[in-house]
Design a protein around this nucleic acid. Structure first.
Lengths: 251, 251
DNA sequence: CGAGTGCTTGATGGAGGTCAAATGTAGTGG
DNA sequence: CCACTACATTTGACCTCCATCAAGCACTCG
């Protein structure tokens, strides 16, 4: 077992990849290329073409209304697949941008069809990936519509920390968080002004501080308590299908 | 070409089903059974087991917080698959309930694996189905966070009408809408009191009236204008993959 | 050193939440 | 057919959280 490529690792979160699966994925891998901060990957109405595996850096997909309101739909961390939920559409309905600079690996959307055709386990892993991104969305809907700004921010900080922890070693006391106050507002549907006041209060209360591109947590106990976080929706487990998948060995 | 079963029709929206695909789906179909209004199909934390094809009636999936706030995630119309986005999870994180009474056809979640294994086109159609339910969610997030209650209600009415129209003949002047004011509030994240005031205003303005389980539209022009509706996210088109799918004929 | 961007802070106002009570409207059983 | 219960809708009074507007500050990068 060699090291997994980011693409392999992204689907390997949900099941053990067979040699066949790994070879299959490798055969579709193209070279990754650097992307600048704020670089746009596609616009709304663009024809769906390449998706991207995010090797490093953060990215996001956005929807906006005519009035200029931006709403972040997905915040993508290293190892995730940008745009997987749109590969069956003719046109994008989101815009995609890099949040930081990073490395992205393009991936023609039709290749998903080839993968699905060639490996049932990988097809199911793709379903798992899409469903988990959707679970993030449902949680966001629940939180943004029913909690105070303070609680939303804390919840989002915890969520992001836990997601990050699955990908790399991070320390709760101080971890990367390259999200500007404006962006945070666009994620939670709050004005940048109110985000600012909320962060200020959290700092004064000795809970946490966001400084530049990092978050420093002072009181993790209170953080988790106030964030009222139930991590079930982040689960990568897929046990319920393991038995059934065993019937479809690599051909 | 005989008549399609609801299950076949639900995936046939995205591509033409081959005889092989239709036979495959038929082989998994179980008998549909009646379900009462408000009947619970599953609870949060329940082990994922059966999904359901909704033959008739309306259903919804819900997430709630400890404080008792309910948030409707999906509102499911006849012909849709309840819980498709959760089949890769071990436990449900939503609750599912019938909104009206209706007919539901159970469907063991492992069977999705069999379908994916046996037919690439059907696998892709399942991706299309999940992605379109997710598109409804992203639109909901955008609308609930950035629009006034009045605009949200109008948007939702138009959305529901257009979705309904894809399934059956409906008349904009008067169509079924079995959504109580409380439920509407739980969908949009607004209090029932405010929903009531908003509906009252819409009626006084001569736009539309919700009476019992129906909506009557008085001024369709103003409805569409104010709803500011862009129906791209409802598109069933999947042209971008048609060529690639043609490579995988029924075995 | 100037310009752009992001952060900070104050003042003001409004959309929608909450509480409470009244009024329908089914549906159930006697 | 009526009494009783449960639930949906309606309406009023009050209040709060957050948006908006505006101005000043701080950092970074040509």
């Amino acid at each position: 077992m060699g090291i997994l490529s980011p693409f392999q690792a992204s689907l390997g979160r949900y099941l053990d990849l067979s040699d066949h699966d790994r070879a299959l994925m490798a055969s579709f891998e193209q070279e990754a290329r650097p992307a600048e901060q704020n670089q746009r990957l596609w616009r709304p109405r663009d024809k769906v073409g390449d998706l991207y595996v995010l090797h490093s850096g953060w990215a996001c997909t956005t929807r906006s209304s005519k009035d200029g309101d931006r709403q972040i739909i997905d915040l993508l961390l290293p190892g995730e697949i940008i745009g997987i939920q749109e590969f069956t559409f003719v046109q994008h309905n989101t815009e995609a941008n890099m949040v930081t600079r990073g490395l992205i690996q393009p991936f023609p959307h039709e290749n998903i069809v080839d993968i699905v055709a060639a490996s049932t386990p990988l097809a199911i892993a793709l379903f798992a990936k899409i469903s988990r991104q959707e679970a993030l969305l449902t949680e966001r809907l629940l939180v943004t519509l029913h909690r105070s700004a303070r609680s939303q921010v804390l919840h989002f900080v915890v969520e992001t920390f836990l997601r990050l922890q699955k990908v790399k070693n991070v320390d709760l006391a101080s971890f990367e968080f390259p999200v500007s106050q404006r962006l945070l507002g666009d994620i939670l549907g709050l004005s940048p002004v109110h985000i600012n006041r909320t962060l200020k209060t959290l700092e004064q209360d000795g809970l946490l501080k966001k400084y530049r591109d990092r978050i420093e947590v002072y009181d993790s106990e209170r953080l988790f308590e106030e964030a009222d976080f139930d991590d079930q929706y982040l689960s990568d487990e897929m046990d319920g299908l393991r038995a059934r998948l065993a019937q479809f060995p690599p051909s």
